[in-house]
């Protein structure tokens, strides 16, 4: 029995050791590439798939878009903290603020969900400090453990596919997908209304970003990217709640609310995401607006 127990622990030990070694290895490898961006880039764009698909940073010359699908404010906070530290020239943060970002439903989907943590953990491990790690671990230990177990697989990918390709902090995605009609159809069928309650966790990290920007002289601009009229009609209540929240909590910051921005149908990939054509059109307008001010 003693031999059995020892061998079981040895096996688990090997397993845990591989995970820890690869976590450290990943961190060293990623850090060796650093987070430096070009000196002339002083505008950082963060957020979820809305900004990821809408703002083409090739057209917005002094900016870098690190938005990533399903990024909550927790992950955006980690990113601005690290990027500002490594790139002191960053003086403006454009942050996605849409009707869904603060909803309680997204707290579970974008922060606490196991498969979400599993996929995000490896990307953001290097940006986390102990309290961030503890926060995630307390929220979903199983998700974090699964995320740690993924790290050797990530090491293999980093080695074979290259760090820059695999370190997916986010970037502008030019999409040629076209499922607007299906999406309209689907949303018409779906009569379910989401709860309008806001997540305290998402609010906490949104205010952490605000606090960080204030302390580090970073100008914060909120942005809501163009939404299809069918979407705004359907989500009118959510957009109203967002406006109320902005007016009572964030009004001292600029809010570029383009939810009603007029974009032809062929510029959308679905009801709330622009495609490559839409991104080109929208970014050109956005750059003009920002330059005007």
């Amino acid at each position: 029995m003693k031999r059995f127990v020892i061998n079981c622990f040895k096996f688990l030990g090997v397993f845990i050791l591989i995970c820890i070694v690869s976590l450290i290895f990943n961190s060293i490898l990623i850090n060796s590439y650093g987070y430096k961006i070009e000196e002339n880039k002083n505008v950082l764009i963060l957020g979820d798939s809305h900004t990821e698909y809408a703002i083409d940073d090739d057209l917005f010359k002094n900016s870098i878009n690190l938005s990533h699908s399903a990024d909550s404010y927790f992950y955006s906070y980690l990113k601005i903290r690290k990027m500002k530290k490594e790139n002191p020239q960053i003086n403006t943060l454009i942050l996605a603020l849409s009707n869904h970002n603060l909803l309680i439903e997204y707290e579970d989907r974008w922060i606490f969900n196991t498969s979400h943590i599993k996929s995000k953990f490896r990307i953001y491990t290097d940006l986390m400090k102990l309290p961030d790690f503890c926060f995630l671990f307390k929220s979903n230990p199983s998700g974090v453990i699964q995320g740690i177990i993924e790290s050797p697989k990530y090491s293999i990918k980093l080695l074979f596919k290259g760090v820059l390709k695999e370190r997916d902090l986010g970037k502008f995605q030019a999409s040629n997908r076209n499922r607007l009609k299906e999406d309209i159809e689907q949303r018409r069928k779906n009569k379910k209304q989401r709860s309008l309650e806001y997540s305290s966790v998402e609010k906490k990290y949104l205010f952490s970003i605000i606090d960080f920007c204030n302390r580090n002289n970073v100008k914060l601009i909120f942005i809501n990217t163009p939404l299809h009229p069918e979407y705004t009609k359907k989500k009118a209540k959510e957009l109203q709640v967002l406006n109320e929240f902005y007016n009572s909590n964030l009004s001292k910051f600029k809010f570029l609310n383009y939810s009603n921005f007029d974009v032809p149908d062929d510029c959308y990939q679905d009801l709330d995401h622009l495609n490559a054509k839409g991104a080109k059109l929208f970014t050109a307008h956005l750059v003009n607006e920002i330059n005007k001010n």
Partner: peptide, 14 residues
């Protein structure tokens, strides 16, 4: 043999 088992173990998770 242990390498094989560890690989299977990781494969199950991954």
């Amino acid at each position: 043999r242990w390498c094989f088992y560890v690989i299977i173990f990781f494969t199950i998770f991954w």
